[in-house]
Amino acid sequence: MENYTYNSFTLQLEGLNVSKNSFYPVFLFVFFAYLFIIFANVGIVVLVFMDKNLHQPMYLLFRNLAVNDILGSSTVLPRLLIDMLRPPSERLISYYECVVQAFSTHLFSTTTRTVLMIMAFDRYVAICNPLRYATIMTNKMLIKLTVSAWGVSFVLVGILLSLTIRLNRCRTLIRGYFCNNAALFNLSCESVFINNVYGLTFTVILYTGSIGSMVLTYTKITVVCLTRKNKSLNKKALKTCSTHLVVYLISLFSGMSIIILLRFPAYAESRKFATILYLIIPNSLNPIIYGMQSKEIRKILSNMSESKRCLSS
Rank of each mutant, 00 (worst) to 15 (best):
F39Y: 13
L13E: 00
V30W: 00
V223N: 08
T138R: 02
R175A: 14
I159R: 03
L301H: 02
M214F: 15
L245C: 08
R309I: 12
R228A: 10
P88N: 07
R228K: 12
F49R: 14
R228E: 15
L35G: 14
S148R: 06
V30D: 01
M292F: 13
N234V: 05
E190H: 10
G255H: 05
E306A: 12
F253Y: 13
L262R: 06
T105Y: 08
N64E: 03
G212P: 01
M84Q: 02
E269T: 12
G151Q: 06
L142P: 00
F108Y: 09
V152Y: 03
Q101V: 02
Q12H: 13
L145I: 05
V246W: 00
F49M: 11
L160T: 09
R113Q: 10
K20V: 11
A40K: 03
C128R: 02
S19M: 03
L167V: 09
M214H: 13
L60R: 12
S191I: 07
L16M: 05
K239E: 15
V18K: 06
D69V: 06
M50P: 04
L11P: 00
V42P: 01
R79W: 13
I143V: 14
C189V: 04
Y218G: 02
F108P: 00
E90G: 08
S284I: 05
I297L: 04
R166C: 12
G43E: 02
V197F: 10
Y248I: 08
Y177N: 08
F185M: 09
F39R: 10
V224E: 14
A102K: 00
H55I: 05
L252M: 08
S210P: 06
L77M: 12
L167E: 03
L279Q: 01
A33G: 11
R171I: 04
K236R: 15
R166L: 09
L167F: 06
Y24L: 15
T203E: 04
S19C: 08
M1N: 12
L92C: 10
L277P: 01
F62Q: 01
S242A: 15
F253H: 11
L245H: 04
V48F: 00
L156H: 08
V192D: 03
T219W: 13
L13Q: 03
S284L: 12
K235Q: 14
I259W: 12
